[in-house]
Nucleic acid binder design. Structure first.
Lengths: 190, 190
DNA sequence: GTCTATAAGCAGATAGAC
DNA sequence: GTCTATCTGCTTATAGAC
């Protein structure tokens, strides 16, 4: 229960602007204007523009990596693990569509935290890759190209933030079910 | 056969830098430095930074829209049309991985051409959506949520530019075949 | 076709008043 | 906690010499 209401407000507004134009094209004056204060006032709450980006990205990246570790060590089939990964992405994209945009598009503008971010991302992708490989070995998943399967599913999941805000009428569980079907069983009718 | 060698060189170098850091974070000095000239010299070949972005994005967007129109009016099954779309994306991503990054991430920085770009994109997506719907009506494609199928496939195809440069050992046709399988028939083993 | 010099404005960030 | 005023450096772009 920290009394950081104003700081959180800054992060929220900044993330919304970063999604629209990208980190580099958003100025401190833009962020201040959206909060109806002057740019200098922002520095009473945050130390730099860079700190805003760091806070937005690292918290989400850590959440993904931690949850992926839980899923990876779950005692269920590989297909069930994939379904849990889909649900994780849908859940975070619903909670934090703005932050997801920065995570996907502005991570390269991280300075001190860039290496740490890349470690988190690699850890996440390594676990994802291992789950697919285990699924292949258990004959749950086709004996195809692991990297292409990983890339294909991950591309869709990473793009959810672009799409969810436009389709708010769609319930979260319904989206998860539809994505599971499309990503795992494909779209061809048999 | 225009004698625009230098201009093309500028566009190529700029696209490479835009892919790495995004349009807004790349300065005219960055582009000039990569060409080993001074920033002022760029203006002998192009009129503004904005013109560089416009040239990179609009040419690719027009290519996608034109080719999609050809595919849409082809006299083949819907599944075959989808396979042609996959091949189109793989082909362009191989030819122009750098430009694809700007098309995906920097279109919002277009000024005069923004509306035109959105028209091209909408035309492309409308044709894609129609192909899926025709496939459903013809019982070639499952009776699922059209928007989710469209979104899922398009997310993967739009992200190809991120992935192709790292996997140059993979042949284009092999990538097309693997993507067709994963996107259309899914990854589950039966 | 490239250069130097420079204009005019905007960027992130700080100091100190209230 | 927000303000005004300001610093310093970087931005796109132009003018004119070579």
């Amino acid at each position: 229960m920290k009394k950081e209401g104003r700081k959180d407000e800054i992060l929220k507004v900044a993330a919304r602007l970063f999604k629209k134009k990208g980190y580099a094209a958003v100025t401190m004056r833009d962020i201040a204007k959206a909060l109806d204060i002057k740019a200098a006032s922002l520095y009473n709450h945050i130390s730099s523009k860079q700190e805003i980006l760091k806070m937005i990205i690292i918290s989400i990246a850590e959440e993904f990596t931690e949850e992926m570790n839980v899923i990876y060590t779950n005692d269920v089939s590989s297909i069930e693990k994939l379904k849990k990964i889909v649900a994780l992405h849908v859940n975070i994209a619903y909670k934090n569509s703005y932050g997801m945009a920065s995570l996907n598009n502005d991570w390269m503008h991280l300075e001190e935290q860039l290496e740490y971010y890349l470690e988190l991302r690699n850890s996440y992708e390594d676990n994802f890759r291992s789950i697919i490989k285990e699924g292949i070995n258990a004959n749950e998943i086709i004996h195809g190209n692991t990297e292409i399967m990983l890339f294909s599913i991950l591309s869709t999941l990473r793009s959810l933030y672009l799409w969810i805000p436009k389709k708010e009428e769609l319930k979260s569980e319904e989206l998860v079910n539809n994505l599971n079907q499309v990503l795992i069983d494909g779209i061809r009718n048999h």
